[in-house]
Amino acid sequence: MTRPQEHARHRGSIADTGLELTELGFGGSVIGNLYRVSPDEDAAAAVDVAWNAGIRYFDTAPHYGLGLSEHRLGLALRERRRDSYVISSKVGRLLVPNEVPRGVDSEGFVVRDDLCRQWDFSRDGVLRSIEETLRRTGLDRLDIVYLHDPDDHWRQAADHAMPALADLRGQGVVSAIGVGMNQSAMLARFLRETAADVVMLAGRYTLLDQSALDDVLPAAQEHGKSVVAAGVFNSGLLAHDRPAQGMTYDYRAAPAQIVARAQAIAEVCEWHGSSLRAAAVSFPFTHAAVANVTLGMGTAAHVLQNVDLHRQVPPPGLWADLRARGLLRRDVPV
């Protein structure tokens, strides 16, 4: 069973900002040469195919390829009507000249390391980062700005960066502000204690990890705010219909018990006529606070594959069956 062609329909607005995201988002890390070189023409083709498939939400960050993702995404979107899509980027990692380059970036992107990342969640750092992002993308504004991985910087991020973003939102420079992280507990604090409209939750509401039910998802519902789900494949294990030993889970070799659980979930998905990958893409939408699922996309083929997975409607009873078998938490809404 598949969704109709207009699969990128609006699920809901981001808080009270007036922004609406298509259900499926384009994650720009891969076109920043994540783990391997992505030619310029492949990056451009990926954005074109995503656009033709109805995707209108695009996410990037300075971190992705030391600015390469921002440059490529901005170039691909530059000739499109600016009010016809939503673009987000991030602050917290300034790009500064690298005084001791070794030839290639050390954080997973296959790019020269003439620049390096410098943590900075100060007000000046936020303003400088946004200015440099606009220069790299060639765009006149950003729609959403996230604080990027402030795990070790709560005080500066909450007391300085978020108020700076709130001022920009108040001036109409950006439409929505938020935080993106791989943990959920601090995201919940940002929703409860700061002016954040939306959070990008990576890997904590998936078929293998529903820990966000303890904090960020109820916080979003309580405060009328929104969640963008990312990392739905948990860095690789759920990206295969038949999980196996040696695959990655949360950027490490997957423990045997996690692989076994993924295999059990895959078997149930197959019994229902679905697949593990399609279920992984659909699962975050079981919670009403989730407005969008954003997937990394690097080539036209990759985009088409993700679009196809998103179009597959979960079979009736799949989530309830997984929950009854103890493969999902009992408090997962089904």
Rank of each mutant, 00 (worst) to 15 (best):
5 Q>P: 00
9 R>V: 10
12 G>E: 05
14 I>G: 03
15 A>N: 12
16 D>V: 07
25 G>H: 03
32 G>W: 03
33 N>C: 13
36 R>T: 14
36 R>M: 06
40 D>Q: 12
48 D>H: 11
50 A>L: 03
60 T>E: 05
63 H>P: 01
64 Y>K: 13
64 Y>I: 12
66 L>V: 08
70 E>D: 14
75 L>I: 01
78 R>L: 14
79 E>M: 07
86 V>F: 01
93 R>D: 05
99 E>G: 03
100 V>P: 00
102 R>A: 13
106 S>C: 09
108 G>V: 02
109 F>D: 00
109 F>K: 03
112 R>N: 07
112 R>H: 10
112 R>T: 13
113 D>C: 10
119 W>V: 15
121 F>Y: 15
123 R>S: 15
127 L>F: 09
127 L>E: 15
137 T>K: 04
137 T>V: 07
140 D>V: 04
142 L>T: 07
146 Y>D: 12
150 P>Q: 11
155 R>L: 12
161 A>S: 13
161 A>T: 12
162 M>S: 10
163 P>S: 09
167 D>W: 08
169 R>C: 05
170 G>W: 01
170 G>L: 01
175 S>I: 00
178 G>Y: 09
195 A>T: 14
211 S>V: 08
227 V>A: 13
237 L>G: 04
240 H>G: 02
244 A>P: 00
257 Q>P: 00
259 V>Q: 01
260 A>T: 08
263 Q>P: 05
265 I>G: 05
265 I>S: 03
265 I>F: 07
270 E>L: 09
272 H>R: 12
277 R>G: 01
278 A>Y: 04
289 A>F: 12
291 A>H: 07
293 V>D: 13
301 A>E: 11
301 A>F: 00
303 V>Q: 04
306 N>C: 10
307 V>Y: 05
307 V>Q: 06
310 H>N: 06
311 R>W: 03
312 Q>W: 00
313 V>F: 02
313 V>G: 00
315 P>W: 02
317 G>V: 08
322 L>I: 11
331 D>C: 12
